[in-house]
Structure formats: C-alpha cells, structure tokens
C-alpha cells in the first residue's frame, strides 16, 4: 500500500469515527432510559425529530436562538413527564416487550403530532458552524464533525458528572441498580423516570440539532433511531461507554465497508451493514460488548 492509499484509509477511518460519534449521540438517549427503567425506547428517534422540529420552527418564527433552545427544552421536560404519567405509570411491572411496543406506539404519536403541529416541509438549520474541511497531516477532517464530536464529549462528561455528583444522579444509579431496593428506601420512582425521560429529551434535542444541521430537519430525522439500534446492540443496551464505543466501531467500519466492500456488491450497503456487524458481534457476545449479563431463573 502506498503512502497515499494509507492516508486515504486513515481519512475514511477518521470520517467514519466522527460520524460514529453522531450515532453515539442518539444511542446515549436510549441507554439513559434503558438503564433506569428497563425500557427500550423506540420513540427516541421521534423525540429527536420533535425537538429539532420545534426548535427550528420557533427560530423561523423570529424567536432568538437561546430563547428557542430554552422553550424547546421546556417542551421536552413537559413531554418527558407526560410520557411518564400517561404511558409508563399505567404499564408499571409489565414485561419489557410490552413497554417496548408501547414506545413504538409512542413514536407514532410523537411523529404524527410533530408534523401535524409544525408541518411536513423540510427545514434547513444553520447553527452557524463553518463546515469547511481542514487538513491535518495530509488528512481532510470536517470541522463540523469535529465540533459535533466535541459537543458529544462535553455532553457525556456533563451527564457523567451529573450521575456521580448530584443527589438525583445518585438516585438514578440506585434505580438502575435495583428498582425494588430503590423503592424500599423511599426513592420516588415516577419522579426519577420523568427526569430520566427529560434527560433523554435533552440528549434528543442536542442530537436533533446536530443531525438536523447535517441532513435538514424533516421526517427522515426520526429514522436515525434505526442507525442507533445496531450501535446499542453492539455496545450493550445499558452502557453509556458501550454506546460510545459501539458508535465509533459502527461508524468506522460502515465507512470502510462502503469504500472497500461496497463496489463489489453494488453499493448502498449502509442500510444493513451495521446490523450485520452487530449480529456477528452478538453471536459471540449475546449481550453486546459492555452489556450486563442477566442470570436465568426458573
């Protein structure tokens, strides 16, 4: 392999890693909810769409950037607590599958509502980030992707700090560890779940803004849920670290596969390659790379 080929591989790899960060961003929202309530929240993608659509519609109506962000966040808080009250609380103690299917229904409601309220047209979103690639040692790197990665890193750091140094974060960890024990010591589960869904809503907002700036804000934004699922499967549903590592692995190998494997099979393999990769990993490690193994009891 010549030097330039090598550089090209590195460039593809870096691009893949950075787009993997974008996947992780969505996946983290899933992990938060899964860890604390055992729900695989399929509606995460539609929450991304809802947050981004609300934000961009507010901005287009002339409301300043910061205020729009605040209003959207308030809406996500309301959404999180409404979901807890109307969907989770009545379904408490039901099987994880039932809860998953409920979030499927939820995703239909949120998608429908978001587009009924704000319309179905495509919105462009300009975050004021310059997207000119710059060169590092002969490799072109997108500055937007780099900034997105920085934001994701900041968010993960913020979430970790929140989990480790605040009271409610401690409560989160207690609930994630053992729901019954948490209830027994008097933690208020409904409030914690509401807060967790809010946190997931916040993650959705961040992801929505970054993805929206990239793709434009439209219905297909909610389909990034399908990009995040293999990441989750690969990393394990209950590990933030897994979501990040999984995102990086999927992002990088997807890009490499598209470049080196794609031409042999006619291209367009990004739709399923991540799933195939995740499946292969699962066959070796059935609960993902970092997922918790569950004991089986009769």
């Amino acid at each position: 392999m010549s030097y330039y080929d090598f550089l090209f591989v590195i460039e593809v790899l870096v691009g893949g890693l950075l787009s993997g960060v974008m996947y992780s961003l969505v996946a983290i929202g899933f992990v938060l909810i899964y860890k604390t309530s055992g729900v695989l929240n399929f509606a995460q993608g539609s929450m991304v769409l809802f947050a981004a659509l609300t934000f961009v519609s507010l901005v287009e109506r002339g409301i300043p950037f910061a205020l729009s962000l605040l209003i959207t966040f308030a809406v996500m808080v309301a959404l999180g607590f409404t979901i807890e009250r109307t969907v989770l609380r009545p379904l408490v103690n039901r099987s994880p599958m039932t809860l998953f299917m409920a979030t499927l229904g939820l995703s239909y409601i949120i998608e429908g509502a978001a587009q009924l309220i704000w319309g179905t047209q495509v919105h462009g979103l300009d975050l004021g980030i310059d997207d000119t690639p710059f060169e590092v040692g002969g490799i072109l790197i997108s500055s937007f992707d780099l900034l997105a990665a920085a934001i994701a890193a900041a968010m993960v750091a913020g979430l970790s700090a929140f989990f480790y140094w605040t009271r409610i974060g401690l409560a989160f960890r207690a609930v994630a560890d053992d729901q019954f024990a948490a209830l027994a010591v008097g933690l208020r589960l409904p409030r914690i779940w509401g807060t967790v869904w809010t946190a997931a809503g916040f993650v959705a907002l961040v992801a929505g803004l970054l993805w929206g700036a990239r793709l434009g804000i439209q219905f297909s934004l909610s389909l990034i849920v399908l990009k995040a699922l293999p990441v989750l499967v690969l990393g394990g549903f209950d590990s933030i670290l897994g979501a990040i590592v999984g995102g990086l692995i999927i992002g990088a190998s997807e890009k490499l596969a598209e470049v080196y494997l794609g031409p042999f099979v006619g291209g367009g393999i990004e739709g399923w390659f991540a799933y195939a990769l995740a499946l292969v990993v699962l066959l070796v490690r059935p609960s993902g790379l970092f997922g918790q193994k569950t004991a089986e009891r009769v």
């Binding site: 109307t86 969907v87 009545p90 379904l91 039901r94 039932t98 299917m101 409920a102 499927l104 229904g105 939820l106 995703s107 239909y108 409601i109 949120i110 998608e111 429908g112 509502a113 587009q115 009924l116 179905t120």
Partner: peptide, 17 residues
C-alpha cells in the same frame, strides 16, 4: 396521514394498558 399515525399510536398504548 398524521392523524392516522397519532390515533394508531394512541390505540396501541391504550390497548397495551
């Protein structure tokens, strides 16, 4: 189309509950 999605989603949740 949108209201159909909403009704369907709501029905799923109502039935599950």
């Amino acid at each position: 189309d949108m209201s159909q999605r909403i009704v369907l989603g709501a029905l799923i949740i109502i039935f599950l509950i």
